[in-house]
Protein backbone atom coordinates (compact mmCIF):
# COMPACT_ATOMS: atom_id res chain seq x y z
CA UNK A 1 0.00 0.00 0.00
CA UNK A 2 2.84 2.38 0.77
CA UNK A 3 4.09 2.03 -2.78
CA UNK A 4 1.86 4.98 -3.54
CA UNK A 5 3.28 8.46 -3.35
CA UNK A 6 2.68 10.06 0.03
CA UNK A 7 0.95 13.40 0.32
CA UNK A 8 4.09 14.95 1.83
CA UNK A 9 6.88 13.85 -0.50
CA UNK A 10 8.45 15.04 -2.65
CA UNK A 11 7.82 18.39 -1.05
CA UNK A 12 7.44 20.16 -4.35
CA UNK A 13 7.08 18.49 -7.66
CA UNK A 14 7.32 19.86 -11.18
CA UNK A 15 4.11 21.37 -12.46
CA UNK A 16 2.23 18.95 -14.67
CA UNK A 17 1.59 19.69 -18.31
CA UNK A 18 -1.37 21.79 -19.40
CA UNK A 19 -2.98 18.65 -20.77
CA UNK A 20 -2.71 16.65 -17.53
CA UNK A 21 -3.69 19.67 -15.45
CA UNK A 22 -6.75 20.16 -17.59
CA UNK A 23 -7.69 16.48 -17.41
CA UNK A 24 -7.36 16.37 -13.63
CA UNK A 25 -9.21 19.64 -13.17
CA UNK A 26 -12.06 18.23 -15.20
CA UNK A 27 -11.86 15.07 -13.08
CA UNK A 28 -12.28 17.12 -9.90
CA UNK A 29 -15.27 18.90 -11.41
CA UNK A 30 -16.82 15.61 -12.48
CA UNK A 31 -16.30 14.22 -8.98
CA UNK A 32 -17.98 17.32 -7.51
CA UNK A 33 -20.91 16.89 -9.87
CA UNK A 34 -21.30 13.24 -8.81
CA UNK A 35 -21.43 14.35 -5.18
CA UNK A 36 -23.88 17.19 -5.90
CA UNK A 37 -26.15 14.80 -7.80
CA UNK A 38 -25.87 12.06 -5.15
CA UNK A 39 -24.45 9.82 -7.86
CA UNK A 40 -22.46 7.77 -5.37
CA UNK A 41 -21.97 4.84 -7.74
CA UNK A 42 -20.34 7.28 -10.14
CA UNK A 43 -18.21 8.67 -7.31
CA UNK A 44 -17.08 5.26 -6.04
CA UNK A 45 -16.01 4.38 -9.59
CA UNK A 46 -13.53 7.26 -9.33
CA UNK A 47 -11.97 5.88 -6.11
CA UNK A 48 -8.99 3.53 -6.11
CA UNK A 49 -9.12 0.21 -4.26
CA UNK A 50 -6.30 1.38 -1.99
CA UNK A 51 -7.99 4.70 -1.17
CA UNK A 52 -7.22 6.55 2.04
CA UNK A 53 -9.76 9.30 2.64
CA UNK A 54 -8.78 11.40 5.64
CA UNK A 55 -10.22 14.47 7.30
CA UNK A 56 -8.46 15.02 10.62
CA UNK A 57 -10.09 16.73 13.59
CA UNK A 58 -7.83 19.66 14.35
CA UNK A 59 -7.85 21.47 17.67
CA UNK A 60 -6.82 25.10 17.98
CA UNK A 61 -3.34 25.15 19.47
CA UNK A 62 -0.62 27.73 19.95
CA UNK A 63 2.04 28.04 17.22
CA UNK A 64 4.73 26.70 19.54
CA UNK A 65 2.75 23.47 20.03
CA UNK A 66 4.25 20.86 17.73
CA UNK A 67 1.61 18.16 18.26
CA UNK A 68 1.07 16.43 14.92
CA UNK A 69 -2.67 16.82 14.44
CA UNK A 70 -2.68 16.11 10.71
CA UNK A 71 -0.72 12.98 9.86
CA UNK A 72 -1.08 11.12 13.18
CA UNK A 73 -3.78 8.65 12.21
CA UNK A 74 -4.38 7.47 15.77
CA UNK A 75 -6.12 10.75 16.61
CA UNK A 76 -9.80 11.47 16.15
CA UNK A 77 -10.82 12.24 12.59
CA UNK A 78 -14.06 13.09 10.81
CA UNK A 79 -13.01 10.62 8.14
CA UNK A 80 -10.16 8.11 8.26
CA UNK A 81 -11.52 5.65 5.77
CA UNK A 82 -10.53 2.96 3.33
CA UNK A 83 -12.68 2.35 0.26
CA UNK A 84 -14.57 -0.40 2.08
CA UNK A 85 -15.31 1.96 4.94
CA UNK A 86 -16.61 4.63 2.57
CA UNK A 87 -18.83 2.01 0.99
CA UNK A 88 -20.18 1.04 4.42
CA UNK A 89 -21.16 4.65 5.07
CA UNK A 90 -22.82 4.87 1.68
CA UNK A 91 -24.92 1.77 2.42
CA UNK A 92 -26.94 3.92 4.81
CA UNK A 93 -28.45 5.77 1.86
CA UNK A 94 -29.54 2.54 0.21
CA UNK A 95 -31.48 1.23 3.19
CA UNK A 96 -34.50 3.41 2.52
CA UNK A 97 -34.62 4.29 6.24
CA UNK A 98 -32.11 7.15 6.35
CA UNK A 99 -34.96 9.40 7.46
CA UNK A 100 -32.99 12.63 7.61
CA UNK A 101 -31.99 12.27 3.93
CA UNK A 102 -35.59 12.49 2.77
CA UNK A 103 -36.41 15.14 1.59
CA UNK A 104 -32.97 15.30 0.05
CA UNK A 105 -30.27 17.80 0.96
CA UNK A 106 -29.36 20.24 -1.82
CA UNK A 107 -25.61 20.27 -2.34
CA UNK A 108 -23.18 22.41 -4.33
CA UNK A 109 -19.44 21.76 -4.31
CA UNK A 110 -17.36 24.61 -5.69
CA UNK A 111 -13.80 23.47 -6.44
CA UNK A 112 -11.07 26.06 -6.99
CA UNK A 113 -7.31 26.75 -6.79
CA UNK A 114 -6.38 23.57 -8.59
CA UNK A 115 -2.65 22.84 -8.91
CA UNK A 116 -1.26 19.63 -10.34
CA UNK A 117 2.25 18.35 -9.73
CA UNK A 118 4.29 15.38 -10.82
CA UNK A 119 5.37 12.92 -8.16
CA UNK A 120 8.14 10.31 -8.19
CA UNK A 121 5.78 7.94 -9.95
CA UNK A 122 4.93 8.64 -13.56
CA UNK A 123 1.26 7.65 -13.20
CA UNK A 124 0.54 9.50 -9.93
CA UNK A 125 -0.09 13.20 -9.53
CA UNK A 126 -0.45 15.39 -6.49
CA UNK A 127 -3.42 17.72 -6.77
CA UNK A 128 -4.07 20.68 -4.51
CA UNK A 129 -7.51 22.26 -4.44
CA UNK A 130 -9.85 24.34 -2.31
CA UNK A 131 -13.52 23.63 -1.81
CA UNK A 132 -16.64 25.50 -0.84
CA UNK A 133 -19.37 23.00 -0.07
CA UNK A 134 -22.80 24.52 0.41
CA UNK A 135 -25.74 22.60 1.84
CA UNK A 136 -29.35 23.59 2.10
CA UNK A 137 -32.18 21.39 3.26
CA UNK A 138 -35.83 21.48 4.28
CA UNK A 139 -37.11 25.05 4.71
CA UNK A 140 -34.06 27.13 5.61
CA UNK A 141 -31.33 24.91 6.98
CA UNK A 142 -28.06 25.95 5.47
CA UNK A 143 -24.36 25.75 6.09
CA UNK A 144 -21.07 26.23 4.33
CA UNK A 145 -17.96 24.14 4.69
CA UNK A 146 -14.76 25.67 3.38
CA UNK A 147 -11.33 24.15 3.27
CA UNK A 148 -8.46 22.72 1.32
CA UNK A 149 -7.50 19.31 -0.01
CA UNK A 150 -4.36 17.50 -1.05
CA UNK A 151 -4.94 14.46 -3.25
CA UNK A 152 -2.99 11.81 -5.07
CA UNK A 153 -4.68 10.78 -8.31
CA UNK A 154 -3.48 7.78 -10.32
CA UNK A 155 -3.88 7.39 -14.03
CA UNK A 156 -5.36 4.03 -14.97
CA UNK A 157 -6.50 3.24 -18.46
CA UNK A 158 -6.90 6.83 -19.56
CA UNK A 159 -8.91 7.89 -16.48
CA UNK A 160 -7.84 9.06 -13.04
CA UNK A 161 -8.64 7.45 -9.69
CA UNK A 162 -8.38 9.05 -6.27
CA UNK A 163 -5.81 7.24 -4.13
CA UNK A 164 -5.22 9.64 -1.24
CA UNK A 165 -7.13 12.63 -0.01
CA UNK A 166 -6.53 14.79 3.01
CA UNK A 167 -9.22 17.34 3.74
CA UNK A 168 -8.54 20.27 6.03
CA UNK A 169 -11.76 21.94 7.13
CA UNK A 170 -11.13 25.50 8.30
CA UNK A 171 -13.44 25.19 11.30
CA UNK A 172 -12.55 24.53 14.91
CA UNK A 173 -16.08 23.90 16.12
CA UNK A 174 -17.66 22.45 13.01
CA UNK A 175 -20.42 24.97 12.41
CA UNK A 176 -22.94 22.38 11.38
CA UNK A 177 -24.96 19.59 12.95
CA UNK A 178 -23.46 16.82 10.84
CA UNK A 179 -21.38 15.85 7.84
CA UNK A 180 -23.81 14.13 5.52
CA UNK A 181 -21.43 15.09 2.74
CA UNK A 182 -18.14 14.07 1.20
CA UNK A 183 -15.62 16.79 0.46
Amino acid sequence: MNQTTTLERPRTGATASLEVTHALTQTLYREARCLDDEDYAGWVAMLADDLHYHMPGIETRYRRDKTDQVTDLTRMAYYNDSLDEIKKRLLRLETGTAWSEDPATRYTHIITNVEVEHTDKADEFRVFSNFYAYRNRNERDEDSLIGSRIDIWRETGGAYQLVRRRIILKHNVMLSKNLNIYL
Binding site: P56, G57, I58, E59, T67, Q69, D72, T74, R75, M76, A77, Y78, N172, V173, M174, L175, S176, K177, N178
Partner: peptide, 11 residues
Protein backbone atom coordinates in the same frame (compact mmCIF):
# COMPACT_ATOMS: atom_id res chain seq x y z
CA UNK B 1 -9.43 9.47 25.80
CA UNK B 2 -8.03 9.17 22.29
CA UNK B 3 -6.22 12.35 21.16
CA UNK B 4 -8.36 15.15 19.80
CA UNK B 5 -11.88 16.38 20.39
CA UNK B 6 -14.43 16.90 17.66
CA UNK B 7 -16.95 19.66 18.16
CA UNK B 8 -20.11 20.44 16.26
CA UNK B 9 -23.09 22.73 16.69
CA UNK B 10 -26.67 21.54 16.91
CA UNK B 11 -29.57 24.00 16.99
Amino acid sequence: LVGGCIKSVIS
